[in-house]
C-alpha cells in the first residue's frame, strides 16, 4: 500500500504540467525512499524523469515496491480540481487498479476525493551512465525559458557554446540568425538584492546542437525552480535539472543533433 501526503498540490500540478506533453502515460515507481518516474517520448529523443523523496511527504508510507501506471492527461485534469494550497493525499491499496487522490482545502471545509483507473504499463528503463559532465551551467530558469522562446522564432535548433566566460545560445533559420550570450554574473544586483546567478564550471569547452522544440517543452518546469542546471558533455545528451524545492527534482535528457 501507499499513502503519501503532500503539503501543497501546486508542486504536483507543476510536475504533471511539465511532463504531460512529452509522455502520455508511464509508471510512477513507489518505494520506501519516495516516488520516481522515468520515461522517454515516442521518438526516443527526450527522457523525462523526476524524484520526490519520501521526506518531502508527511506522512509517507510505502511498504513494498509499486509501479503505478498513470495516464498523464487524466492526472492533469484531476489535479486541476485541486487548489494550489490544498493538501494532497495519494493513496493506493494493494491488489487494486485504482489510485485515490484526496484534496483538502486549507480551511479543512472542503475535501474532494477522486479515483483514477491505473494502467498496466510495461516500461523500459534506460540506464544512464553516471559521468562527470565536461561543463555544468547554473542559470536563472526564467532567463533560460526566455532564450528558448526567443530563439525558436529564428530556427528549429540551438547551438549552446559554453566557455569559461559564459554561455552563448545561437540559432540559424531560413530568414536569418540570432544569438544570446549570458555571461557569468555576480550574485547581487544594483539594489543589493540577491539576483539569479549564472555560473559555469568546466573541464572542457562544450558545444552542443539541440532541438528547440524539446527545450521549450522542458521549460514548462521553470515555475518549479528559480534555477536550471545544464550538464553538458561534447557529443553526449544534455541533462537539464530543475529542483523541486528541497524534496526532489525533475530531470530531462535530450539527445544532441550532429552535422552530417
Amino acid at each position: 500500500m501507499l499513502e503519501a501526503r503532500l503539503p501543497a498540490a501546486s508542486i504536483l500540478k507543476k510536475i504533471v504540467e511539465s511532463i504531460k506533453d512529452l509522455v502520455s502515460q508511464a509508471n510512477f515507481d513507489c518505494s520506501e525512499s519516495g516516488i520516481s518516474f522515468q520515461a522517454m517520448d515516442e521518438s526516443n529523443i527526450a527522457l523525462s524523469s523526476f524524484l520526490l523523496r519520501a521526506d518531502g511527504f508527511d506522512p509517507y508510507r510505502c511498504d513494498r515496491k509499486l509501479s503505478l501506471g498513470i495516464r498523464f492527461a487524466t492526472l492533469s485534469k484531476i489535479l486541476k480540481c485541486a487548489g494550489n494550497d490544498d493538501v494532497v493525499v495519494i493513496r493506493y491499496a494493494d491488489d487494486t487498479d485504482i489510485l485515490s487522490l484526496v484534496f483538502e482545502a486549507p480551511d479543512n471545509n472542503r475535501i474532494s476525493e477522486f479515483d483514477i483507473k491505473l494502467l498496466d504499463i510495461s516500461s523500459e528503463y534506460l540506464s544512464i551512465p553516471e559521468q562527470e559532465p565536461e561543463c555544468k551551467v547554473k542559470m536563472s530558469s526564467a532567463e533560460f525559458s526566455r532564450i528558448c522562446r526567443d530563439l525558436i522564432t529564428i530556427g528549429s535548433s540551438v547551438v549552446i557554446d559554453a566557455t569559461k566566460s559564459g554561455v552563448k545560445f545561437s540559432s540559424t533559420g531560413d530568414d536569418g540568425s540570432g544569438s544570446i550570450l549570458i555571461k557569468q554574473s555576480a550574485s547581487v544586483d544594483g539594489d543589493g538584492k540577491a539576483a539569479p546567478q549564472t555560473t559555469v564550471e568546466m573541464s572542457e569547452p562544450v558545444s552542443l546542437e539541440l532541438s528547440l522544440k524539446y527545450l521549450n517543452n522542458f521549460t514548462k518546469a521553470a515555475p518549479l525552480s528559480e534555477y536550471v542546471v545544464m550538464n553538458m558533455t561534447n557529443d553526449s545528451p544534455l541533462m537539464l535539472q530543475f529542483d523541486v524545492s528541497d524534496i526532489g527534482y525533475i530531470r530531462y535528457f535530450l539527445a544532441p543533433q550532429i552535422k552530417d
Partner: peptide
C-alpha cells in the same frame, strides 16, 4: 544538414 540522434545511441536498456 543535421541529424537528430536518439537516446538509445547513448543509454542502454536495463
Amino acid at each position: 544538414m543535421t541529424n537528430q540522434l536518439t537516446l538509445n545511441n547513448f543509454f542502454s536498456n536495463n
